[in-house]
Amino acid sequence: MPHSEQSLLQAPLGFGLGLRIPHYETILQTRPAVDWFEVLSENYMVPGGKPLYYLDRIRALYPIVMHGVSLSIGSSDPLNRDYLKQLKALAQRIEPRWISDHLCWTGVENVNLHDLMPLPYTEEALRHVVARVGEVQDILGRRLLLENVSSYIGYTQSEMSEWVFLREVAQQADCLILLDINNIYVSGFNHGFDPAEYIDAIPVNRVQQFHLAGHRNQGDYIIDTHDEPIIDPVWALYAHALRRFGPVSTMIERDDNIPALDELLAELDQARHVARQAHAQPAVA
C-alpha cells in the first residue's frame, strides 16, 4: 500500500523481533536477518551497565522501536511525569522509530500491579484516555502508538465494544495503533466476539505496527503467555489483517520460555511467507 504525503504512518520496517537478553550476544556476533527490534522501554530505564551497553550496540546495527508497559494511560491516577521524563530521555538516547504502550491501566493510588489491566469501554474512560494521550504526545513530541491488550474480564458498565473504543481513542486523540493480532484472538475467545469483525473496524490509516505471539489455551479461557509458537488461527487472522491494512511492520513477541534465536527467525520467516501470500491475494470484500 503506498504511503501518501498525507499519511499518518511511517513506511513499514518489515519483520522484527522483541530484543531479549539471551539473544544479545548472538545478535552482535551473527547479525541475523531481522529487519528491526522492539525493546521493552522499562528494561533500559536503568543507570547503566549491560542493558544499555547492548542496547547501544544493537541500535547501531538495527532500527529500534520502544515498547512500554508502565505508562498506565487509562489510570485514574495522575500521569507519572517522572516516568515520562525517563521515557523521553531514553528516546533521545536511542532515537526509536516510534514509541508504543498499551491501552490499559496498571494501577491506582500509586500502586503498580505490573499488569495490563483492561479499561471499561465507557464514554467517561474514553474522554479520560483521549485527554491523557494528548498530554503524553505533547511531552514526547510525537504520536504515540497504543496497543490492544488481552483481557479476561468484561465490565458490566461497558457501553461500547473494544474495537469501537480503540478506534475512538485513536481518532479523537490523533494517536496511532499497535494492533496485536494474538490479543484480538485471545480476547475474542475469552469474550465471544469475532476477531475478524474487530479487525475490520480498525481504521486503516492508523495502524503502524502488528504484534504476533503465542498463548496458552486453558479450555474455558486463553491466557496470553507469550511463551509458545504462534498458532494457525492467529496466522490466519494475521493474513486477514494484512489484506485489510497492507504491509504493516510486524514483530513476534516471545517473553517466556525463550528459545534460541534461530527458532524465532524461522517463525519470522513464516510471517514473511504469510505476508507474501496475503498480498498476492486480493482483499475479500
Partner: peptide, 19 residues
C-alpha cells in the same frame, strides 16, 4: 465481583482470579 460479567464459559470470580 458485581462489576464483572459472568459467562457460561467462566464466572466473574474465575475471570478475576486470573488477574
Amino acid at each position: 465481583r458485581q462489576e464483572v460479567a459472568s459467562t457460561p464459559q467462566a464466572s466473574a470470580e474465575i475471570r478475576l482470579d486470573i488477574y
